[in-house]
Write a protein that binds this DNA or RNA. Structure first.
Lengths: 198, 198
DNA sequence: CCTACTTTGTAGTCCATGACAACATTCTCT
DNA sequence: AGAGAATGTTGTCATGGACTACAAAGTAGG
């Protein structure tokens, strides 16, 4: 049981991110202390600084990783929904809100404007899931299920609706039981509200 | 210029809230330190504790006040929009997103789930603007401009869309210039997507 | 009024944490 | 092997929240 602790951890950056993600999930961003992470991992209090110049940098890295994970979640959901446009929309919207409510604190990090200089990196990371929404809208327009027009605008509004539903639930302003019903209403309204003019 | 400083400030609670709101707006919640407020107001570092048992309590009070201010903003906007349903919707939605983007940090406080025990108080405060949305939907339903059905659900989805648009802009994921266009798209989609089935 | 009680502010302290600097160890590459 | 770069450690500082004991000002009841 004599734990060998080599001078170099070997994987500290990843270990920090993993531990940070767990703390974020369990206790929120406010409770996330670099020193706690270091203690838990078994390195000295200043070690994290070699990998993240400051606390915010670690949070930003979490946000960037979050967008990547969100993107792959959405793509998986969409791929599993077949080719039908409506079912793709439904699957994607459901997957998004599920991710958002399962990762409340992470979502907050991802969308919150605390990022001053690193904003570019985060905005870039956000483009992946954003792009997916755009692809979806483009499919709908190609199939004449959605009105032509500013694709990005429609996509952003859809994205915003999902994000808003999740935010209301995460903020405990709306009880979680309502999630599925709200998403369903949002899906229906979107499909009806954005379909081509007759 | 000999500033008379009576032992008792006389209005410290209000002074704290005012100063806090300004700091919140100018520098964000993270930068809000009780000791700074005390210094600025000219009281000792522990004085704020007489009015707010801890930092979070002050932030919660700001959030509650924020909901009240939001409510009155929305009611004013709605009152100024005449009786027509569509124009009321438009006015309210515009006022909401304007408030939300003008008070980004405050909005975050209002919706963020950092409130553990005080959640009840904040949820109560949120009911005022929520109720306004409900009233609006009820009017639309009464005038047969909206489908019958779960009023609250429709209202929450509408609210969520606005909140989401504001969040995307506040988080700098979407440039602010797009605000008006996005709101317009959201209004149109809402009016079309939630209108009665033909 | 004046005395007891309450409210509100002050002074002093403790502790956790982020940031930084100086130094130590290990790795890597030639 | 040796030089320089990475990566960790120890030590230190400043900030800020939380807490306690004390002081001053307000407020009532007698």
């Amino acid at each position: 049981m004599t734990e060998e602790r080599p001078y170099h951890h070997g994987n500290l950056r990843v270990a920090l991110l993993d531990a940070a993600e767990r703390v974020l999930r369990e206790q929120g961003a406010d409770q996330l202390a670099l020193r706690d992470l270091a203690r838990e991992i078994g390195v000295s209090h200043a070690a994290p600084r070699r990998h993240f110049p400051n606390r915010q940098a670690l949070l930003d890295a979490l946000a960037v990783a979050g967008f990547a994970r969100l993107d792959s979640t959405l793509r998986t959901a969409m791929a599993g929904a077949g080719e039908d446009f409506a079912s793709r929309v439904r699957a994607t919207m459901t997957a998004y809100t599920r991710f958002a409510t399962d990762n409340a604190a992470l979502l907050e990090l991802m969308y919150t404007s605390k990022h001053r200089p690193d904003a570019k990196q985060i905005a870039e990371a956000a483009e992946a899931p954003f792009g997916l929404m755009i692809e979806l809208i483009l499919q709908g327009q190609a199939e004449c299920k959605l009105q032509e027009g500013d694709t990005a605008r429609i996509g952003i509004v859809l994205f915003a609706t999902l994000q808003g539903i999740a935010a209301l639930i995460n903020g405990k302003l709306v009880p979680p039981e309502l999630l599925d019903g709200l998403v369903e209403t949002a899906v229906e309204q979107f499909l009806r509200g954005a379909r081509p003019l007759p």
